[in-house]
Design a protein around this nucleic acid. Structure first.
Lengths: 342, 342
DNA sequence: CCAGTTCGTTACATCGTTGTAAACCGGATA
DNA sequence: TATCCGGTTTACAACGATGTAACGAACTGG
């Protein structure tokens, strides 16, 4: 028997299809004898319910999609891990889309191309505009992760962190440690890039607050947020007069920058301090260990899954806005003492 | 209209359900007028086919599962990226399971718990035994990634690399560079751990070949293959007499070991050379950059997807055994000159 | 002008499951 | 003995899409 169905089990057990279904679904009124017989038949044929049929019938699949730019980026890999765990606790399965931060692909993701296959969507967009979002037919519930898109009034739940405050705190930390030429790596010239803009704002606020002059030549743009981009941006900064600290808008940029600094013989943090953002695992084992902003990824994932669950069970109130706390992790890359003691 | 069906489109266009279906599926014999009318109706209602219904009807879902121990491990994240891309080229969607290398979870994965939801399974097991595999009802096609399980005659396609040869080459490289006390980090005391055993064998072969004495105290066991494990194992090695080179069975172990070495003031590669395995991106931006064994991950993913496709389209021959090539990447962590020039 | 052909369209059954409502059965009640 | 009742089991109709086979209409050729 290749693929037994309820019917096959029913025939073997000598009962009706529905009775088998009742057993499978733990329907209360099934006599012990019948149940035993059915269970035996199920075991004998090693029957498994057809999930497609169930989905069709129930209008639900138990599958949610997680769309991220790129699993290669450890931040998203770690986020995915957390999301999968949180979804698992609800009995959901997670399907992963990679958008590469490509606007066209991101539009495909929200266009409901997989309508009816997924019950909901957790989406961390990079390039999407408010207009793209507004044009969406809101059938499949969606929760946005990361940056808010469009000004205000989005109909979608959103989970994020306070990027401005976090970037500000990170930059202030550098200033407090005595840095006067604080560079920033990570602004992007693309139209959207909301996250980068917010972190830049926090950086600028901090400079103003600390009375450190803002030097535009210390703000290094990058194309993407990978290690290579960070390394290359750092090179440019060094060529045009070394800073004494650099705040990178994420950890992969920071690891790239760190690489360039060490390769060119700079002491970190002695000559240049480095600060990242995301708290990916790599940073904890870099040398020097990387100071960073640590968002609570597990909580981000959990909140997002909870919000989605709320929508799936019929919740229709206005969009929730969840701001997950973050903390600063001060490690060797900004702390001369920590570094010396090693 | 919340969720338009073929029926709704058909009514709006004034044709039968099947005609709409024909348009959606590019059935050739549809007149231009009809097609235009139907397409207009589809657009107006923004109709999307119900994939659950399609799956039920077709007996296929277009979804494949990828089961890996842990996306936190960059190797698996990178592999997942490649798999998703390869699957995408075939129009498949990938659903990800994390097993944590836990045998119970791995058994659930192969037990067909998601039968009928997924068309096939790409599985990278850690703890599974040959017995577990043998007990599987082979309904959903499965391709194994990584290590072979059980001796010979598994009915499953398998994609891997020649671990013994790779480990041997990596270790020989260390010996050629003059190392005499070559440590190994990564053997596991657990029952299975096939990969670790193979890499250990390659390491031992190389020692014998190079005429380097094999010192059992230089083989450091670990519980898992994470950075922390590597760091801790390195610590132990240093405490009991420093080696002059260390071959780590994967890159995360190596990065952990590297961290410990630098923290404790050792020069790498000057005093201790470090060699990893996997060629994860982090290694290229570590300082010093990490020498490693680089398996062709894209090819692994592509081969696995191809094998699965073959099975899905009815291929029933005996199990294929694909051995993907690897190369050695010699970087600063084993090359004094490369390191000095920086 | 009719039989034969082709093209475009349609009705129907089916995939496997589950909600609904009705049928069944033995025992307790009137 | 007839009625009722609770628990147990069942038949049937959906869920939405598509393959099959059959239909009608518009042609062709004799």
């Amino acid at each position: 028997m290749v693929r037994p169905r309820l019917k096959d089990v029913a025939e073997l057990a000598g009962v009706s299809i529905k009775t088998v279904s009742n057993v499978v679904n733990d329907y209360p009124h099934v006599s012990d004898v019948t149940r035993a017989r059915v269970e035996a038949a199920i075991a004998e044929l090693s029957y498994r319910p057809n999930l497609s049929a169930r989905s069709l019938r129930a209008g639900r699949s138990g599958v949610v999609a997680l769309a991220v730019p790129d699993l290669d980026n450890p931040y998203f890999a770690e986020l995915a891990t957390n999301v999968i765990e949180a979804a698992d606790r609800r009995g959901w399965t997670v399907l992963i889309d990679q958008t590469q931060g490509d606007r066209a692909k991101e539009r495909v993701v929200i266009s409901g191309i997989r309508d009816h296959l997924i019950d909901g969507l957790l989406f961390s967009p990079l390039a999407l505009t408010g207009k793209d979002l507004a044009g969406r037919d809101e059938r499949t519930p969606m929760v946005l992760l990361g940056e808010r898109i469009g000004m205000g009034r989005s109909p979608y739940d959103h989970v994020g962190i306070d990027n401005v405050a976090a970037a500000r705190a990170a930059t202030l930390h550098l200033a407090e440690r005595g840095a006067r030429r604080i560079a920033a790596i990570g602004v992007q010239r693309t139209a959207v890039a909301a996250t980068g803009r917010l972190r830049l704002r926090g950086y600028q606020q901090a400079l103003a607050e600390a009375g450190v002059p803002a030097d535009p030549s210390l703000v290094a743009p990058v194309a993407r947020w990978g290690r290579a981009d960070g390394a290359e941006a750092m090179s440019r900064l060094l060529d045009s007069g070394a800073p004494d600290a650099v705040f990178c808008f994420n950890d992969t940029l920071a690891l790239g920058a760190l690489r360039t600094l060490l390769k060119r013989g700079y002491e970190v943090p002695g000559e240049v301090m480095v600060m990242g953002f995301d708290d990916i695992q790599d940073g904890r084992f870099a040398t020097p260990t990387l100071s960073t902003v640590a968002p609570d990824k597990a909580l981000i994932a959990q909140s997002a899954v909870d919000l989605l669950a709320e929508r799936l069970s019929g919740g229709t109130g206005k969009a929730h806005e969840v701001c997950v706390p973050h903390r600063l992790a001060f490690r060797e890359s900004t702390d001369v003492r920590a570094s010396r003691t090693t």
